[in-house]
Each structure stands twice: as C-alpha cells, then as structure tokens.
C-alpha cells in the first residue's frame, strides 16, 4: 500500500542520545504510564460507588506497600508529564525554543517533578 513506503517518524535509531531528546521520550512514556493510572482512577471511583466493602478492599490495596510504591511512581510520572506539558505549552507560544533555553527548562522540569513528588509524599505522611 502507498502508506508503507512513505518516510515515517520518529527515527529512533539514527540519533545519538542527548538530554532534551531523552526528556521528549520521557514525556511520551510518562503519558502512557499515566493511562494505567487512569484505569486505577476508574477502579477507585467504581469501588467508592460500589459500597463500603468494595471501598475497603480498594483502600487496602492502595494502603499496602505495593500500592504505595505504584502510587509513588504515578506521582512522579504525573508531575513530570504535567510540568513538561506546561513546557510544551510555552513552546507553542514561540518562546524558549532555542537549544540553551530548552536545556534549562528541561532541567527545571526534572528538578521540579522530583521536588513536588517528595513534597506531596511528605504531606501524605504528615496527613495520614
């Protein structure tokens, strides 16, 4: 068919890895990971609607060490994807597009994601 002979992107194999490229892939990977979190949100809402017994089951899963670890991972994915999403929105206005600005905002996004994840879990431990 005509479609199969046309050039296709992204060409992952032909580039040397560099920082902003890694962040770009990480945006996609974190987005895909958050789709799993979205299924989790649907599961939690269904449990809350399903009555006390199902809610207690869900809370037990989320409160366990494995549930906590997964939630911690989702928190990091969320903050990375959200902050990098804002970075993309700024780019869409035509700002910060040159190499050095992109590198700086990338460092900011990674640092911000780690910091906000730590702050969120600190707050969780203090509340809970």
């Amino acid at each position: 068919m005509a479609g199969s002979v046309r050039p296709l992107s992204p060409h992952l194999g032909v580039y040397r890895w560099y920082f902003t490229m890694g962040l770009s892939i990480a945006h996609r990977v974190s987005g895909a990971g958050l789709v799993v979190a979205l299924v989790g949100l649907a599961w939690w809402l269904a449990a809350l609607a399903g009555g006390p017994a199902r809610y207690a089951q869900a809370q037990a899963v989320l409160g366990g060490w494995l549930g906590g670890l997964v939630l911690l991972g989702f928190t990091l994915l969320f903050f990375y994807h959200a902050l990098n999403g804002v970075r993309h929105l700024v780019w869409d206005t035509g700002r910060n597009l040159d190499k050095h600005a992109a590198h700086r905002s990338g460092v900011l996004v990674v640092a911000g994601a780690v910091l906000l994840t730590l702050l969120t879990w600190l707050a969780l431990l203090l509340v809970g």
Partner: peptide, 28 residues
Amino acid sequence: TALALVPLSVWFLLSAVSLAGAPYAEAR
C-alpha cells in the same frame, strides 16, 4: 485539554492528599 488539566490537576492533587486513607462515609 492540556490547559484545562492544569487547574483540574491542582484540585485533584490537593483533594487526594487531604482524602488519603479517608473512611468510606467521608469519601462519599
């Protein structure tokens, strides 16, 4: 959708943290 998710995410995050481990009746 990305833009709309900025304030909605802030609301969700604050809610999730304050609601963590809440009993059934409180969450409902």
